[in-house]
């Protein structure tokens, strides 16, 4: 279904707002996972503000859709979305990584309302998502489980163990999104450790595969809607993205996987996303 122009404008505004939060949560002179958080801003915006069935007033509602950030270092994007949804007050965003904060460097369910698991040790989120989808099957519930993976992350062997589990158990309520931002911590994926070809691998492992521009809100919404109709197989949406998307000095740069913005860079990035 094509989005209305209002929906499109709203989701575009939200993605911008998420980037504003990501930049300000990191601040100047301190390291933060800027690149991988900005590459998923549109995907996270569409999931939380268009697609997912969830209730910020009741984070443990049994019928909610689940969202797992397997590439947990991009937590900033998710924290920003949770705050904008109203899971917790926006003020918490300023406490990221402070001792005792509800916002840890990587997602932790017990500390943060709206977080579903413990991710960030890469490669584990897809298996956890499988377990959640299996539980839904046993309980005959129709909630969906969404899981975002990184294209560097899928070098972890456990991802492929999980991909077989998802296909073998026909987990069609499971939708994975590959944030194909082309860059891992140490450099471009094709140079450092090439995990390609992606669609072919997931197809061979028994998944229904789609490919989209991961910054095109309409394409993201279409792919997520189409996934609702896939039966008997899990869905993989390979989303072509740009690491650090929207932040000119960070785009495509491994340095900003976990980089430090200078004062000038920070001011520039902040201004770009200010309302």
């Amino acid at each position: 279904m094509p989005l209305t122009s209002d929906q499109l404008a709203r989701l575009t505004r939200i993605a911008k707002k998420l980037r504003y939060h990501i930049v300000t949560m990191i601040g100047a002179g301190k390291p933060g996972h800027l690149g991988g958080s900005c590459s998923i801003a549109e995907i996270v915006a569409v999931l939380y503000f268009y697609k997912m069935r969830h209730n910020p007033k009741d984070p443990s509602w049994p019928d909610r859709d689940r969202f797992l950030l397997s590439k947990g270092h991009a937590a900033l994007a998710q924290y920003a979305a949770l705050a904008e949804c109203g899971y917790f007050p926006n003020e918490h965003l300023g406490t990221l990584k402070e001792l005792g904060s509800i916002l840890q460097g990587h997602p932790e369910k017990r500390r943060t309302p709206g977080i579903e698991a413990y991710t960030g040790s890469l490669g584990q989120g897809l298996s956890i998502a499988c377990g959640m989808a299996m539980a839904g099957k046993i309980d005959k519930k129709d909630y969906k489980v969404y899981c975002i993976l990184g294209d560097g992350e899928i070098a972890e062997g456990q991802i492929w163990e999980a991909s077989m589990t998802a296909a073998f158990y026909k987990l069609d309520k499971l939708v994975a999104i590959l944030d194909k931002n082309l860059v891992q911590a140490s450099g471009p994926i094709v140079e450092r450790y090439d995990t390609n070809p992606h669609p072919e691998k997931w197809r061979a492992f028994g998944w229904h595969v789609m490919e989209i521009d991961g910054h095109d809100i309409q394409q993201i919404a279409n792919a997520l809607d189409q996934a609702d109709h896939v039966k008997g197989r899990p869905t993989m949406i390979v989303a072509h993205t740009v690491k650090g998307k929207g932040v000119p000095f960070a785009e495509g740069k491994a340095d900003f996987h976990h980089g430090i913005m200078t004062k000038e860079q920070y001011q520039l990035a902040r201004q770009l996303f200010e309302e």
Binding site: G123, S127, M134
Partner: peptide, 21 residues
């Protein structure tokens, strides 16, 4: 659930099941 010869996946799948009660 037979998860095949993959213990890492097995534990995280168990985690997902536990997270759903």
């Amino acid at each position: 659930f037979e998860v095949g010869i993959g213990e890492q996946n097995m534990i995280s799948v168990a985690a997902g099941l536990a997270l759903c009660g």
